[in-house]
C-alpha cells in the first residue's frame, strides 16, 4: 500500500514537471536586413510567437507578415502587396526541433550552442532549414539568438526587374527571443 502511494506520487510529480517544460514568448523579435549597393532595407517584428518544448526539443515560430515594420511606408506596402503577399499568406511559420536540446541545462546559467532543424514556411512555400544559434540560460529564461540567410527565390518571392537591383537576393534574418516558462 505504501509503496503504491509512493509510486503514485512519483508518477504525479513526473507528469507535473513534464507539463511545466514548455517555454513560450509572444513578443519575440525578428529582423530582416537586405543590403545592396543602392539601399539598405530593414524591417522589425516584435510580435513573434514561439514555443519550445524542453522535453522533446520541439521548437515552433509563428510570425505575422503584416507585423513587420519598415522605416519607409512605401517599402512596407511593396513588401506586403508584391513580395510576401500578406493578404494571401498572412503568416510565416517554422516547425522544427532543437536537435541537441539535451546539451542545454535549464538549471545552469550559461550560453549553449544549439542546432535547429525543421521546416520554414514563407509565402506559402515550405523549405527544410538547418541553422545554428545560441540559447542563453539566464534566471530560468531561455534567450534564443540566431542569424542566418534566406534566399528569396527559394520561397518563390519574385522581385520586379526595375527594383531588383535595389534588393539583394538573400536576406539576413536575425532572431532574438526570450522564452519564459509557460504558466499552464
Amino acid at each position: 500500500m505504501r509503496i503504491k502511494s509512493i509510486f503514485l506520487s512519483l508518477l504525479l510529480l513526473t507528469a507535473l514537471s513534464a507539463g511545466a517544460q514548455k517555454y513560450i514568448t509572444k513578443t519575440g523579435y525578428i529582423k530582416f536586413y537586405s543590403a545592396s549597393p543602392l539601399e539598405k532595407i530593414e524591417a522589425h517584428n516584435r510580435q513573434v510567437n514561439s514555443v519550445l518544448d524542453l522535453a522533446t526539443g520541439g521548437f515552433v515560430f509563428k510570425v505575422l507578415m503584416k507585423s513587420f515594420e519598415f522605416e519607409k511606408a512605401l517599402m512596407q506596402e511593396h513588401f506586403n502587396e508584391n513580395y510576401v503577399e500578406s493578404d494571401k499568406y498572412p503568416t510565416a511559420t517554422f516547425v522544427g526541433k532543437v536537435i541537441n536540446i539535451k546539451d542545454v541545462n535549464a538549471l545552469k546559467d550559461g550560453i549553449y550552442d544549439v542546432n535547429v532543424e525543421g521546416k520554414l514556411t514563407l509565402h506559402g512555400v515550405s523549405q527544410d532549414v538547418k541553422e545554428k544559434g545560441t540559447f542563453e540560460m539566464k534566471q530560468g529564461k531561455f534567450i534564443g539568438k540566431a542569424k542566418f540567410n534566406i534566399a528569396v527565390g527559394d520561397y518563390k518571392i519574385t522581385i520586379p526587374g526595375n527594383v531588383g537591383n535595389n534588393i539583394s537576393k538573400t536576406i539576413e534574418v536575425t532572431v532574438d527571443i526570450t522564452l519564459d516558462k509557460a504558466n499552464m
Binding site: Q47, K62, K66, S67, S86, P90, T91
Partner: peptide, 12 residues
C-alpha cells in the same frame, strides 16, 4: 490589425 496567429489576434 495585422492578423491572427492561431493563438491571438494582434492589433498594433
Amino acid at each position: 490589425c495585422t492578423g491572427y496567429n492561431e493563438t491571438d489576434l494582434i492589433l498594433e
